[in-house]
C-alpha cells in the first residue's frame, strides 16, 4: 500500500499488521519517540475537522516528526480555484506524507494519482474515512481481545453514516460476525451493502427498529450521529434525530462487557449520564485513534522509503 484512500485498500493481513504495530506502540511508546524524526506530515484540511486533524498532528509529533498545513480552506489557495493536483504538487515539495480532508468525494484519490508522497484520506465528504475505521477496529480489538465472533449493533443513521458503511465492509471479512442493524425505516443501510458484503456466508444480519430490545444481545454497540447536513429538509431531521438515544437506564439490559463506540462528535444520541459507565469507550476510542494513526504513518513511510 502506498496511499490509504479507502479501507478496502488494506488487506486483512495489512490491517492485522497495523493493529499489532499499534499494540507495540502502546506497550513501548518510548521506542517510537524518534521513529519519524526529520519527517514532515502535511495536514491539508479543505474542510474543517479539528478532531481528526489534531489526532494526525499529535500522532506525528509523538513520533518525533514535524507538522505543517492548513486547518480551513479559507486559508489555502483552493479558494482561489487552485486544483487539488496543483496543491499536491506544491505541498509534496515540503512534506513527506500528506493527510487530506476534502468536502468533495474522490478528492484524495485524485490527489494520490498525482502525488509522489503517500496520501492518507482523512475524510472525503460523506464517502470514505479509513482512519476512522482503523480506529474502530483497533478499539474493538483492544477492548474485546478479538475481531471475530462478535455481535455488533449498529445504531442510528445507517443510510448516510459512512463510518458505519466502512465498518461493515471491514468487519464482514472476519469470521463469526453478527450485525444487528438498529435504525428507523428511513435510515436503513443501503442496498449495495446488504446485497454485497452482508450476503457473505460468514456474516449474520438482523434488523430491528428498537435499540432497547436488542441491547442485551450485543458485544459491541456502535452509535452514530444523525447528521443535519445529510438531510434535505429540517422536518425530517427533527423527527428522526431523537429516535435512538442511549441512556444509562437502558444499560441495565446490556452485557457487563458491552463496548459502546461512537465516531464523535455526538449531538445527543448518547446521554451524558452514560459517559461514566465503564462500557462507554468513545473517549478512549479517540486515544486509540491516535495510536493507530501512528502505526499508519510509520507503515506508510516505511513502504515509501522502500519504493523510493
Amino acid at each position: 500500500m502506498k496511499h490509504l484512500i479507502q479501507i478496502s485498500d488494506l488487506s486483512e493481513q495489512e490491517i492485522d499488521e497495523l493493529i499489532s504495530l499499534a499494540d507495540d506502540i502502546l506497550q513501548d511508546s518510548a521506542r517510537y519517540r524518534e521513529a519519524l524524526r526529520h519527517k514532515t506530515l502535511a495536514t491539508l484540511f479543505f474542510e474543517p475537522s479539528t478532531r481528526t486533524r489534531l489526532s494526525f498532528e499529535s500522532a506525528m509529533l509523538e513520533l518525533g516528526g514535524n507538522v505543517l498545513g492548513f486547518a480551513d480552506p479559507n486559508s489555502s489557495s483552493a479558494t482561489k480555484g487552485e486544483s487539488v493536483a496543483d496543491t499536491i504538487r506544491t505541498v509534496e515539495c515540503y512534506a513527506d506524507i500528506i493527510a487530506m480532508r476534502h468536502p468533495k468525494e474522490g478528492a484524495p484519490l485524485a490527489a494520490s494519482m498525482k502525488s509522489r508522497v503517500p496520501i492518507i484520506n482523512a475524510g472525503d465528504g460523506g464517502h470514505h474515512h479509513p482512519t476512522q475505521t482503523l480506529t474502530d477496529l483497533f478499539t474493538i480489538k483492544r477492548e474485546k481481545g478479538r475481531l471475530t465472533n462478535l455481535v455488533v449493533g449498529l445504531c442510528g443513521d445507517l443510510k448516510f453514516g459512512r463510518t458505519v458503511h466502512s465498518l461493515v465492509h471491514a468487519m464482514s471479512r472476519y469470521d463469526g460476525i453478527t450485525f444487528v442493524l438498529i435504525s428507523p425505516e428511513e435510515l436503513t443501510l443501503p442496498d449495495y451493502l446488504t446485497e454485497g458484503p452482508l450476503k457473505r456466508d460468514n456474516v449474520r444480519v438482523a434488523a430491528t427498529n428498537s435499540l432497547v430490545s436488542t441491547l442485551g444481545e450485543l458485544d459491541v454497540l456502535y452509535m452514530t450521529r444523525v447528521q443535519r447536513e445529510r438531510f434535505f429538509n429540517e422536518a425530517d431531521y427533527v423527527r428522526l434525530k431523537d429516535s435512538y438515544i442511549l441512556n444509562r437506564a437502558m444499560l441495565e439490559h446490556a452485557k457487563p462487557d458491552l463496548a459502546i463506540l461512537h465516531p464523535l462528535p455526538r449531538v445527543n444520541e448518547i446521554a451524558a449520564d452514560v459517559d461514566d459507565d465503564p462500557r462507554a469507550l468513545y473517549f478512549r476510542q479517540m486515544f486509540y485513534g491516535k495510536i493507530i494513526r501512528k502505526a499508519l504513518l510509520i507503515s506508510l513511510m516505511r513502504n515509501y522509503e522502500c519504493l523510493k
Binding site: V84, E105, G106, L109
Partner: peptide
C-alpha cells in the same frame, strides 16, 4: 452526475 463528486469541480480530471 454526483454533485458531490470531485470531477464536478475539477473538470481537468
Amino acid at each position: 452526475n454526483n454533485p458531490r463528486c470531485i470531477t464536478t469541480t475539477e473538470t481537468a480530471l
